[in-house]
Every structure is written in structure tokens, then in C-alpha cells.
Amino acid sequence: MAAPSASKKVVYAALIGNLLIAGTKFTAAALTGSSAMLSEGVHSLVDSGNELLLLYGLKRAARPPDAAHPLGHGRELYFWSFIVALLVFALGAGVSLYEGVIHMMAPEPSTSPHVNYAVLGISAVFEFGTWWVALKEFRRSKGSLGYFAAVRRSKDPTTFTVLFEDTAALLGLAIAFIGIAASDYFEAPELDGLASIGIGLLLAATAMFLARECKGLLIGEPALPHVEEETLRLAAADPAVQRANGVLTMHMGPQQIVALLSIEFHDNLTAPDIEACIERLEARLKERRPELTTIFVKPQTTGVWSARRKAILDADQDE
């Protein structure tokens, strides 16, 4: 799981790179009249706005709990990440598809194609730099998992959002290069518009994938299995605990987890003994797992817990 400082580093790198790239692409589009280059400029501008929204989300999510939000503001990051996915679809994909269709219906030959090639080369260098920063951070956080499995299990949307945006940007540059080169070689300006449509479809697919992952986080996802296993192991190790039946968890943010422990205490314990045990458990768990920001302990027999878990699993299967 990426730390907040690491997430910010990735977002800042992407923001600086995209601002430089957007200015370069718009200049080239104005000089050459290329539809694909204009779509790429819009793409980079939308990505720059997305990075600003992610930084805003990180700042809002870091606020402490208050009376209106007793469990904290961590989910604000998930909300703004979902907005980013919508913007990629509505602005990036929408404008690219529109420009592509218009350019195919009323094709105009591109002028000074060598300017486009130079800009695509410069943009590729900038884009690869920001993509590499995001990839290194994602590799560090994913461990031995595969890339798609790591995205599905990740609780920090900033790193994988930037990584997928930059991957789409590099693929978009490749599509723009092919479209511009084909348009110049075959003297068919319609191919430039077709490349713009291709970029739009690429952005639409990226947006839908990001929206799906952010939706799961926004609704609420449990902690990773090893976190739940360690939580149960630490709880079961307390001498006052007869059995740690199970734990229900939910991420309120990348580093904010709410945990509900079902524990069966020894029958000879008094109420003060149980209260002391709960205090020990909370202190020990938060020391070992600082992301466990809120812990609830429910005295519960094994049978009651098993029935509760079965009801949850049955409901999941019905869906």
C-alpha cells in the first residue's frame, strides 16, 4: 500500500509532465491542423486537471474526524478518483471522438507534418518519464502480485490511476503517430481523424476500467487478507480471549481501516476484566497496524458469529 507522500510524488510528477506536454501538443495542433494532435492535447490537458483533483482529494482525505464525519474523511479520495474517471470519459474520450468524426466528415490536409513528429517525440520522452515514476511506485507497493491483481486489491487509487492514465497517454501517442504518418504517406487526411477516434476509444476503455475500480472502493472494500489474519492472531493471543471468531473490516481510505472484532471471552471474566482486555487489544492492534484507526470489539459466541458470516456469504452469492 502506497504511503501518502509516495502517492503525492507520483501525482506531482504526472502533473508537471502533462502540463508541459499539453502546451507542446496544442502548439503543434495550431501549426499543423492535425485532429489527432488536438485530441492528444485535450487528453494531456484533461490529465493535468485530473492530477489537480487527485491532489485535492488527498488533502481533503487527510482531515481528522469531526462531528459530521466521526470515521474520518478518507473516502473523499475515492470520490475524487471516481470523478477523475468520469472526466477522462466525458472530456478526454468525448472530445477526441467528436474531433475524429468531424475531421473524417470534412477532412483537411495537415501542414508541416514534421512538426507533429517532433512534438510526438518530445511528448513521448516527457510521458515516459512520468509513467516510469508511477510504474516504480506501483511495483514497490504491489509486491509479488500481478499488475491487474494488484490494481484489484489496491486501496490507494492515486497510484494506479496515474499509471493507467500515463499508459493510455503513451498508447495514444503511438496511435497519433500511426495516424499522422499514414495520413501523410497515403495523402488521406481521413486517417488522421480515424486516429483521433482510436484515441477516444482508448480513453473510454481506460475511464470505464478506472470507474469500476473506484466504485468498489467508494462503496466499501475489506482490508487485505493478511491484515485481517494478523488482526485475528493478535486478538487470539490475549490471555483473556477464549476464541477470536472473526473480523469484519472496511477501508475508509488507503490508510484508514474500520475493524469489528467478534471475540469470545473466558466465562469467569468480570466486566472490568473484559474492558481492560479491549483496551489492551486496541492499543496492541494500533501499534502493529496504524491503519486500524477505529476498532470495535463485540463479545460474541462462536455460533452467533458463524451464523452472521453465513448470512453475509449467502447474500454475496445471491448477487
Rank of each mutant, 00 (worst) to 15 (best):
P64S: 09
R63S: 12
H266R: 12
R308S: 12
T159P: 00
I312Q: 15
A14I: 09
A118W: 07
A134Q: 07
L269C: 01
K25V: 08
F82C: 08
V151E: 05
I178W: 03
T249H: 09
F89H: 06
E40C: 06
T161A: 13
S154D: 12
T294Q: 08
P222R: 14
L248Q: 08
P109E: 14
E165H: 06
S5Q: 15
A237R: 05
G246F: 13
T24L: 13
K25S: 02
K8D: 12
N50S: 13
D318K: 09
K59M: 09
I180Y: 03
K286D: 04
V151R: 07
L53D: 05
D273F: 08
H69Q: 00
E229T: 10
C214A: 09
M104L: 11
A124N: 01
T24S: 12
T32Y: 00
K136W: 09
N18W: 05
A223I: 04
T130S: 11
D192H: 03
A276Y: 05
G172W: 00
S183I: 04
G253I: 09
R152P: 03
A169H: 00
Q255P: 02
L218F: 11
A134F: 00
S35G: 02
A240W: 07
V151T: 10
D184L: 04
K9F: 14
G74V: 13
R308N: 14
E165D: 04
Y117W: 14
R63C: 13
A182K: 03
R152C: 09
R309D: 15
M105Q: 15
F164Q: 15
M104F: 10
E275N: 10
H43W: 03
L54K: 06
V258A: 11
E291Q: 13
D47W: 06
E279A: 11
G179N: 08
G198N: 09
M208Q: 15
S154N: 04
H251L: 15
A223T: 00
N116D: 11
R233W: 10
E190D: 08
L191K: 00
R288Y: 13
E279W: 08
T231K: 08
L52R: 12
D166T: 01
A36L: 04
L203Y: 10
S112N: 12
E228I: 07
E221D: 05
M250K: 05
A90T: 06
A195D: 02
E187G: 07
F160W: 03
V88N: 13
A85H: 01
L87F: 05
P189Y: 07
L248G: 06
R233N: 13
H103T: 10
S306A: 14
P64N: 06
A244V: 08
A67E: 13
A169E: 07
M208D: 01
R139D: 07
R308A: 09
A29E: 02
T167K: 01
G216W: 04
L163S: 03
T302V: 14
T159W: 04
A204Q: 00
H73L: 14
T301A: 13
M37C: 10
E279K: 09
Y147G: 01
P189E: 13
I83Q: 15
L232T: 00
L210V: 15
N116H: 11
S34C: 09
P64E: 11
E127Y: 01
G92R: 10
P299T: 11
K215S: 15
R280M: 06
Q242T: 11
A2R: 01
